[in-house]
Amino acid sequence: MKSNSQFDYLSRFRPRFVGHDGARDRTDLRTEIIAGMTTFLATMYIIVVNPSILKAAGMPFSAVLTATVLVSAVSSIAMGLYARNPIVVAPGMGLNAFFAYSVVVGMGVKWETALGAVFWSGIVFIILSVFNVRNMIVKAIPKQLRFAIASGIGLFIAFIGFENAKFVIGNQATIVGISKMNPIVITFVVGLMITSILIVKRVKGAILVGIFTTTLLAIPIGRLYGDASSINAGIPDTRYLERLSFTS
């Protein structure tokens, strides 16, 4: 395996101490590119979602969009080059809501000041990381709780998925409930089943193929339902462009 030239090429991006012949970490250039595209497709919502949340803090949409793209690109590339982990770093959901609703709207802090707070907490983080305090925190977390965190995040991400598809919806009496079957929900269910089958059959790029297939399935629904904010016909929606320039 060590004679494999792709493997040697990839060693530049491989964590320093992972052995070249570890079967668990077998990979090749094509796998890495497909994985990167898949992760991008799963995270890119932040490019539009982040500005629309920070708009509540009074920040200009187009400026936040540019900042979001720059922060995501620079941080993720740095993660790959310096830390060599396949983990995307971008402005986080939850943190943006906290920034907009709790700090700016709730506490009445100006967004310029709140950005200063973001900057200073970053500086504190850099100091804590360089002096290994953050590593010590991770190592102090009992293994049993780490397994719990991974599984809990698994439940959480699935919940977010069901919620994004409007499959699980809010319900006054029971807090959450299931949506009535409609074309959008059914498209999601079909996409979910197709993607499941692709994954079970270990098709290369299964998640990516699943995302594109569901996108194609959604095109007719976009025409029928006309929900331009999330689903449209597959060509850039000019109404959306107008909205962009209007809000900038």
Partner: peptide, 29 residues
């Protein structure tokens, strides 16, 4: 001019596709 950056849970989608090295996050970035 953005809210704080953080590691993304969704990175697990790429890892599930076989991404193991920094090239995955560079591609996404």
């Amino acid at each position: 001019g953005s809210s704080p950056g953080t590691a993304y849970i969704e990175s697990a989608t790429g890892v599930e596709e076989g991404g193991r090295t920094g090239l995955t996050s560079i591609t996404a970035g």
